[in-house]
């Protein structure tokens, strides 16, 4: 048994990450934007939007929301079959003064779970902000997948009365399909965050 090296401790992303991590408006090319789709990207195009709110219900105006997801056929770009994936699957959005974020993406297909059976469609989230000393992991599920959600092995690990915090709500607005997902850092509706 060799001695392990100690993990480098986490620190907050702070308030000033925008010109490095979401830098388009600062004239510096970023590695990711909040748009995963082009017009020709296969699958159901959706808009994912919501707000990040603190324990007082105030908007978190300097959060960084990152998403990681499979394409519409359930393929991750980095999986063994990922050479076939339709996109990279990683996007970033900094929240605005109202705590809002917005992604343009596709609804992901199901991917295999721990036992090989498909998990319900979901998007992984990594959240960080000024005032968060550690990044937080959560997942976004979809409210029009009730049957798949009920069988999902990860949702089953979540106390039943808190599962709703992980489920985005579909809204039709004109032509667009919108899924709304608010993230509550604290309070009655505190979002479930994972140790994974």
């Amino acid at each position: 048994m060799t001695r392990r090296l100690g993990q480098t401790p986490s620190q907050t992303v702070g308030p000033y990450f925008a010109y490095a991590l979401t830098p388009e408006s600062y004239g510096y090319r970023g590695i990711a934007t909040n748009r995963l789709v082009r017009p020709e990207t296969p699958g159901e195009h959706i808009v994912l939007e919501g707000r990040v709110l603190d324990g007082a219900g105030q908007p978190v105006e300097d959060a960084l929301v990152e998403i990681w997801q499979a394409d519409a056929r359930g393929r991750y770009a980095d999986a063994p079959d990922g050479g076939q994936a339709d996109f990279l699957g990683f996007a970033r959005c900094g929240t605005d003064g109202e705590g809002r974020f917005r992604f343009e993406t596709v609804k992901p297909g199901p991917v295999p779970g721990p036992d090989g059976r498909p998990m319900a469609p979901h998007i992984a989230v990594c959240l960080t902000a000024r005032g968060l000393l550690n990044h937080l992991f959560t997942r976004i599920y979809f409210d029009d997948e009730a049957e798949a959600n009920a069988a999902d092995p990860i949702l089953q690990k979540v106390p039943e009365d808190r599962r709703h915090t992980l489920i985005a709500r579909r809204e039709a607005r004109g032509e667009a399909v919108i899924y709304r997902f608010d993230i509550h850092l604290q309070g009655q509706a505190e979002t479930v965050f994972f140790e994974v």
Binding site: G55, Y76, G82, F90, T191
Partner: peptide, 29 residues
């Protein structure tokens, strides 16, 4: 002492979940 953590840091325990394909993959640049 880092004041903004008091209304931004989550208060409930993290929910443990297994690592699935979702967590074991990641963006490649």
């Amino acid at each position: 002492p880092y004041r903004s953590t008091t209304h931004r840091g989550p208060t409930r325990p993290l929910v443990p979940i297994p690592q699935t394909l979702t967590e074991l993959t990641g963006p490649i640049y």
